[in-house]
Design a protein around this nucleic acid. Structure first.
Lengths: 114, 114
DNA sequence: TGACTATATTGCCGAATGGCGATATAGTCT
DNA sequence: AGACTATATCGCCATTCGGCAATATAGTCA
């Protein structure tokens, strides 16, 4: 091995690797991302999210469950309703980062076709 | 609806939603995350990644293909070898963000058990 | 109490996906 | 050319997972 080969910054433990992967995976689904995006506006009940998203009630409830278990959203019971809201400020940073990436890739792909 | 209900900042288009989801999904797998982590040290050939990761050659090649197609890594042929390297500086920011999240969740969970 | 409403859960199915062994491809060396 | 090496791809299997219809749960109201 004659190439530079920087010194390792820090090897991620298998457990951390698994944990981080779960976080990413939770956001790696358009339906869940849509729900997160709707929650950018503020807290919403499940019913509101069903109406706004066009997804089925069962599906919305299921995907919210995933987001809740992975710690991306919080919930409060309010009478019959359940209010969901974003749990982490970093959500905005994250999504902006990814959106920029996707947009850059799109323009790069467009340039490649010229 | 009597709750605040902020004005929508911006609705993500279905295409953007899909694109962002693909980005997240690509990182939502421990094996791929491990490869990315190994590439933090600098560029590596497939063979080196196989040795360092403990994954099979076929699997490493496959997962690198996913990371390449989603734009997370770049590759250069060098004789018989193929050198892979990270394609996006944001990778570091992203992983740090997620790692912090996971660590916070772990300590929070630990506190909850006291 | 019983009727009603909002949400969660269950069972199911089809599609997508990670991993493996085997094989194909492409580049190197003599 | 032929032997060899590094990487990519293929076919397969087992598992995971999104979505749906139906049902269960829990809270409200009269």
């Amino acid at each position: 091995m004659t190439r530079p080969a920087k010194k390792s910054p820090e090897r991620m433990s298998p457990a951390l690797l698994q944990g981080v992967a779960e976080q990413f995976k939770a956001l790696g689904e358009p339906s869940r991302l849509l729900l997160m995006n709707l929650l950018f506006d503020g807290e919403r009940t499940v019913g509101e999210l069903v109406a706004l998203s066009g997804l089925s009630q069962a599906n919305v409830s299921k995907q919210l469950g995933v987001l809740f278990r992975t710690g991306w959203v919080l919930r409060d019971k309010l009478g019959l309703n359940v209010l969901y809201r974003l749990a982490d400020d970093r959500t905005f940073t994250l999504c902006e980062l990814m959106c920029n990436r996707v947009r850059e890739q799109a323009t790069a792909a467009a340039d490649r076709l010229r």
